[in-house]
Amino acid sequence: MSEDASPAIPGTPGGDGPMDIGRFTFTAAEIVRFAQAFDPQPFHMDEAAARRSPYGTLIASGWQVVCVWMGFFVRAHPAARPLPGAAAASGPRVISPVGVGFSVEELKWLLPVRAGDTLTFATEVLEDRASGSRPDWRVYHRRASARREDGAEAMCFRLRHFAPVGL
């Protein structure tokens, strides 16, 4: 990802609608690696155990799908740099392009993500408004999603976060 990429926040309103930010194939090895660290339920860890589960085959932890979305979302932004000029004196000296999250609403794991599935990740701004406390920042309400190759949505959520303007 170029550091000279468009400074706009991905998926900003302006008629673009949802914007794709990346594609990822959930191999069995990747599914098991995440599960070993964070979600070692049998249907995320072991193909034989998964066969006896309601899913019938190895599936990715829902949190892995969410974390992969975030990895693409952050990398879709230009790299962080200090705020220019006067803003630097009143705000944090090092800022992140994505900013700080407050909350997630209606996170839905709609379909199991099976070993070998490739998902396309997307984001869309539903609403944004000026921050009341920090003039150079805005509050974003955004929709995140991941869809399979057949177009079916496998995961979605809404995110509220606080991010600097005009990086």
Binding site: Q41, Y55, G62, F102, S103, E105, L107, K108
Partner: peptide, 16 residues
Amino acid sequence: LRTASMGSPGVSENKW
């Protein structure tokens, strides 16, 4: 891991 878990349909709210 001791529970007969069949997975989760989702999280209705999550606040940091």
